[in-house]
């Protein structure tokens, strides 16, 4: 029996390494869990991309849940998630609000002209200053904000069909019923 102990030790180590590989294929190791989940969205005041004289604030968006999608024309993965968002937007059940991140307005407009514009509202954070309050560190990122202005879910990286069906749609379904 004592001769088996090294072998059992080896099996335990191999099991641990195998678990590590299995875990890493299913989880994005670079995604940082946001401390803002279930907390009120930060205050912000940002201009609209197409009408820079008009501004949007956290208060002006209260009353209806929305999905805040951080994107930029320089972001390659945004082009990957864009068709998914575009197809899903009409049936999502919440408004899709675009957050143009650290982008030249002309680049953003040209990019949207090529790829299509699924956003019902589109604001621009050219400096990226407000994005720090949201804990944004890369695009694309998406925040689900409920009718009371509380962040309920965040996804870092592109929204793939799998993320849409397995995470985003259940999170939208779990939102408290909006006051009508």
């Amino acid at each position: 029996m004592s001769r088996l102990i090294p072998f059992i030790g080896f099996l335990l180590l191999a099991g641990l390494l195998g678990f590590g590989i299995w875990w890493n294929t299913g989880h994005d190791q670079t995604a940082i869990p946001s401390p803002l989940i279930n907390k009120p969205a930060p205050d912000f005041k940002l201009p609209l991309l197409y009408e820079p004289t008009q501004t949007v604030t956290r208060e002006s968006l209260l009353g209806k849940a929305y999905l805040l999608n951080v994107f930029a024309s320089w972001c390659i993965e945004c082009g990957v998630e864009h068709p998914v968002l575009q197809a899903a937007a009409p049936t999502l059940g919440v408004a899709l609000v675009g957050y143009n991140y650290k982008d030249a307005p002309d680049d953003a407009k040209a990019w949207l002209a090529t790829h299509g514009n699924p956003y019902s509202l589109l604001m621009a954070d050219t400096s990226g200053q407000t994005a720090i309050d949201f804990g944004v560190y890369a695009a694309p990122e998406s925040f689900l904000v409920d009718a009371h202005g509380v962040i309920r879910y965040k996804h870092i990286g592109p929204i793939t069909p799998e993320v849409l069906d397995n995470e985003l749609k259940p999170a939208i379904a779990a939102l408290p019923q909006e006051p009508r």
Partner: peptide
């Protein structure tokens, strides 16, 4: 920074 980006 922790408030925005967690203890990470």
């Amino acid at each position: 920074l922790v408030d925005r980006y967690s203890e990470f």
